[in-house]
Amino acid sequence: MSLLHLTHLSKDFRLKGSAFGKPLVLRALDDITLTIHKGETLALVGESGCGKSTLGWIVAGLHKATSGQMQVNGQTAQTGKARARQIQIVFQDPFGSLNPTMTVGALITEPILLHDLAPRAAIPARLDSLLSLVGLRPEIGRRYPHELSGGQRQRVALARALAVEPELIVCDEAVSALDVSVQAQIANLLQEIQAKTGVALLFISHGLSLVRHISHRVAVMYLGRIVEEGPTEQVFASPRHPYTRALIAATLEPLPAASRPRMKLTGEVPSPLAPPSGCTFRTRCPQAQAICATDKPPHDAKPHAVACWRSDDLPAFVPTTLTPPARMLAALQLYRAAAARRATEDTLT
């Protein structure tokens, strides 16, 4: 069932006039059509500045789209408090988004009071269950944000988002600033919470390996457009867009001799103030031909969709093969078994 549906959504930012007084228009999102189903994780990937966060912010009601429609549960999306009840957002920097003068407990329960979701007497019990849902010990509730580690702060932000029992949480680079070990902790937690509560996630990230591990579907963005979208395993196993292929090729694998396709992108993302004509990726695309410079490639309507003139003529995709050495695997296996044993002994951080 579709939870969120965006149709032909665009967003322009008007910047201060240029030297000649003409207002500059930056098209941050260009004709986005996208669906998020109930209880699923949709990942949004792409390089910085491609519009991922703008899209997430619009979904969470923090920006207004310039044109296009947004529906939640089949109805035109509501605004303000009503939207916040349905859709919450967690940011990259939990420090900036948590009021430093409030205790963790107050921070987490504030939305419950704001939305009048529980009688005051029920609040302490609700706080304990939220803390335990995000894997924090009850006494953390009495601390202040600055007394917490980055990972703990992100758990608090997550608990605060979960407090209103939303249907969707936008995670805007929510793990990107954390250590890999803590990233993995939070990613596990997200999966666990989704299994328990059925919340859908819009997981915005530039880290492809994590996206592959935790998302059900993935949408790849380049300069404000979605260039490829589909079930995660399909997109990674047989990417149909040259940009998706380049992103996969640039992802580093934790093994020295991992054979990876040597397709390197040159240059950088062009300025969104002066996007290239036709396909905006053509200036960096190894497959570009004349038509790419003149006509915008349309999206095909397949479940694994792509917007590329050349998608049917791309060379065969060689997936990265990762075969960890036997001793490494055996050691990881031991580690896994020992960690699983410990985990049953102690579950809270």
């Binding site: 890999v180 070990s181 803590v182 990233q183 993995a184 902790q185 591990h213 934790p254 990762l322 990881l332």
Partner: peptide, 19 residues
């Protein structure tokens, strides 16, 4: 550190980060 890498985790199973 290696167990925290999604690539070295088992598909479908949770990753094994350092706690």
């Amino acid at each position: 550190l290696l167990g925290s890498m999604p690539q070295l985790s088992q598909r479908g199973a949770p990753m094994l980060p350092i706690t």
